[in-house]
Structures are given as C-alpha cells and as structure tokens.
C-alpha cells in the first residue's frame, strides 16, 4: 500500500470515527442498550485501526481476531448479530464520505484511495459471517455436551441394583456415552444387576440394538448382569424382522417385571407389611 494512502487514512481516523458515531446514532439497528456511546466509539476505533494495520501488513489476522471476539460475545449472550453487520457498513459509508469530501474534484485519486479500504471492508464482512457461524457452532457443540451429560444417568436403586433409563434417540456418540456412564456407574456402586429401560427410545434399529448388545456384554465382563426392560411390540417386531440374535440377554416387557426378577436374583422379597388401608386398596388393583 502506498505511503500516501496510509497517511491519508491515518490522518482521517478521528474524522471517520466521529462520522461513524453520528451515523450510528441515527441508525435504528444500533438502538439497543449494549451499543451506548462509549462502547460504539471503542468498537469503531479499534476496528478501524486493526483494519488499517492489516492493510499495511497485507493480512487479515488482527481483523479476524477483533471481529471474532465481537461475534462470539454477541452469540454467547444471545444478542442480535445484525448490529455487527451495520458497524462494518457504517465504517464503509463514513470512509467513502470522508474521502469524497477531501477530493471532490479528483475521481481517479478518490477511487485509488478508497479501493483498498473497500476491498478490506468487504473481506471483513466475510470474516464476520464466518465468525458468527463458527461461534454458533461452538455453542451448539457445547449444548450437545450438556445434553449428553444430562441424558444418561445410572441410578443406584437398591444395594447392588442399578437402573439406566434411556430416553430419546440413540446415535453412536450417545451410545458410547451410555456405555461409559453405565460401566463407571457399575464400578462405583459395585452393582451386579442393571436394569436398562428402553421404553423411552423411539426408534430402535440395527445400530441401536448393536450398541445395546455391546453395552450388555461389556457390563457382563465387569461382572454385572443386565436386564433389558420396556421392550415395546414395535421393538420386538424389529428385532425379529432384522434377525438379530439377542442370545443370552435377559429381557422383560416392563420395568416392574424386570424389578421382580432383579429382586429374585438378590434374594429380596417385596412384601407389604400389615393389611388394609389406602395402599392395600390401590395395590389390589394393580
């Protein structure tokens, strides 16, 4: 970049930032609270100076950094990203206006001076779009992790009995998480019986069945027996249709039946103490 152009823009800096603020005050897209006066000045000023620096060094590194952090902040706090676009547009407008007012009679010189700046501001716009997408992807990735953490609890029910209620679609990633969680839960609780309730899994295909079998086998290697409960008719149909051999895996139709079996294995007896009363009446119906 020529020295003359660099000097021109460096000299015009205060004027441009001033114009930007003027324009931004009128702009309805920037009307919200986060964009109060001091904040605006800081944003315009820093953006303009990194842009000039990058133009001299012929890179985009610093611009990417500043815009990236702005985009990340906006996405993180759930703010609208439109103001960020407007900021770059306003910078462009003010820069053009400033240059035009300096050289109103020399169109050649004007286009020579503004050419590079325009190009860089366009690039900055692309950088902004990319940063926003990246920031959103980061947020989604984080949320996925949170969801995974929440979605596979292994609950110790009684001494030696663990319940693993599975809810929602199981993909490979989740299946891994489930296996890890369950095995660690088994070791932690020293549980030798695990009830896996799959009544909350909407779709069961070969993949899911395969993961289930692997989980059961791994649990067996640790020394725990699994009972798969909550097998719905559709699931049974799928298993038979696909010809999957569930082999030695113990299955039961309902959690109650599974619990009964688990109690049997552990020599527990479920017995109501005393007769009559509310509980006895409701119990008789079930």
């Amino acid at each position: 970049m020529e020295q003359e152009i660099v000097e021109f823009w460096a000299d015009a800096r205060n004027e441009i930032v001033g114009k930007c603020i003027q324009l931004s005050v009128k702009d309805s897209a920037l009307g919200s609270d986060e964009w109060h006066q001091g904040n605006r000045e800081r944003v315009f000023d820093s953006l303009w100076s990194v842009l000039l620096q990058d133009m001299q060094d012929d890179t985009l590194a610093k611009t990417e950094e500043v815009i990236g952090s702005l985009a990340r902040e906006a996405v993180k706090y759930g703010r609208d990203v439109e103001p960020l676009e407007r900021i770059i547009e306003i910078l462009m407008e003010s820069a053009e206006e400033t240059a035009r007012s300096k050289y109103p009679e020399e169109p050649d010189r004007l286009s020579r001076i503004t050419g590079d700046v325009k190009e860089y501001l366009n690039k900055a716009m692309t950088v902004l779009a990319r940063s926003i997408i990246k920031a959103q992807a980061e947020v989604i990735e984080k949320q996925k992790d949170y969801l995974l953490e929440l979605s596979t609890p292994a609950i110790p029910l009684l001494d030696g009995i663990l319940i693993l209620p599975l809810i929602g679609t199981i993909d490979t990633r989740r299946a891994k998480q489930i296996m890890d969680n369950l095995l660690n839960g088994i070791v932690e609780a020293q549980a030798d019986t695990v009830l896996i309730d799959i009544s909350g899994v909407p779709i069961v295909d070969t993949q899911v069945a395969h993961h289930l079998m692997k989980t059961v086998q791994a649990a067996r290697l640790l020394g725990a027996r699994c009972i798969i409960v909550g097998i719905r008719p559709e699931f049974a149909q799928t298993i038979v249709k696909l010809g999957i051999d569930f082999g030695k895996i113990v299955t039961k139709n309902s959690l109650q039946a599974g619990l009964k079996l688990a109690f049997e294995w552990h020599n527990y007896e479920l017995r109501r103490v005393g007769g009559g009363g509310h509980h006895a009446a409701t119990g008789a119906n079930s």
Binding site: M179, D180, L183, N184, I186, V187, K214, Q217, A218, A219, R220, L221, L222, G223
Partner: peptide, 20 residues
C-alpha cells in the same frame, strides 16, 4: 472367575469382539 475388570478394558474387549 474373572474379577474386577475395569471399564476401559471391558470396552476394549467388546470392541475387539471378544466377549469371553
């Protein structure tokens, strides 16, 4: 009887297709 196998080892074995 095999006792006290740890989860990572169990997972390795299952992934290798060796369910013992």
């Amino acid at each position: 009887v095999i006792a006290g196998m740890s989860p990572p080892i169990a997972i390795t074995l299952v992934e290798m297709g060796l369910s013992l």
